[in-house]
Design a protein around this nucleic acid. Structure first.
Length: 187
DNA sequence: CCCTGATTCGC
DNA sequence: GCGAATCAGG
């Protein structure tokens, strides 16, 4: 009867691995995955902090990070308040408005020199919405995708109108467009 | 939506 | 000490 599993034993070995990987810049989730099951991203972060390892890089900047002057005190042991809770959906919507893609045909001149300097223009591939599916502002409702298409100043402006997800104002396609990727700018 | 780390607090 | 839950930013 040997215990074949060590769910959460921060042995020196694991701590070493943790330190190493953390210093190498791996993300907490990656380290957690590397360490094996039973170790979650939170566990890694928690350990990292306990070890005072946070801040793997402080070249010349004492950025105390946003120090919450007052802690919001995340109520644990929340008691059921009369069973009435905030209705699903809606919730907190991070600021992020999609930029309507201009479907205007852009004439591109064949300039090798310029072409070499510029990166490939992002394809404006959009979903083609049949006219009978297009919606104007007044036709939108709780279940229509509110992704704007076209130029609001012209007549060829309309909203996607597909069935929207419960988790947001857009259909799946545009929901992805709204957030996912497209924001990999980073300094 | 996905992700990241940071913090708190019950265990 | 541990880590889930939560917060907050990208």
């Amino acid at each position: 009867m040997v215990s074949g599993a060590q769910p959460a034993g921060w042995t020196d070995e694991r701590v070493e691995t943790l330190k190493k990987l953390w210093m190498e810049g791996l993300s907490a989730s990656q380290i957690a995955g590397e360490l094996g099951e039973g170790v979650t991203r939170n566990a890694v972060i928690g350990k990292v902090h306990r070890l005072k390892l946070s801040a793997r890089a402080k070249p010349t900047n004492s950025t105390p990070r946003a120090r919450p002057a007052s802690r919001p005190a995340p109520r644990r042991v929340a008691s059921p308040s009369s069973g009435l809770s905030g209705m699903g959906g809606a919730a907190k919507m991070r600021s992020s408005m999609p930029r309507p893609q201009s479907v205007g045909a852009t004439a591109l001149a064949h300039d090798p020199q310029l072409e070499a300097d510029l990166y490939v223009a992002p394809a404006v591939a959009e979903l083609f919405i049949p006219e009978d599916k297009r919606l104007n502002l007044l036709q939108l409702n709780e279940h229509t995708c509110k992704w704007p298409i076209g130029d609001p100043l012209t007549k060829d402006f309309y909203f996607c109108g597909q069935h929207s997800l419960e988790t947001g104002p857009y259909c799946e396609f545009h929901s992805r467009r709204a957030y996912h990727q497209v924001d990999k700018k980073r300094r």
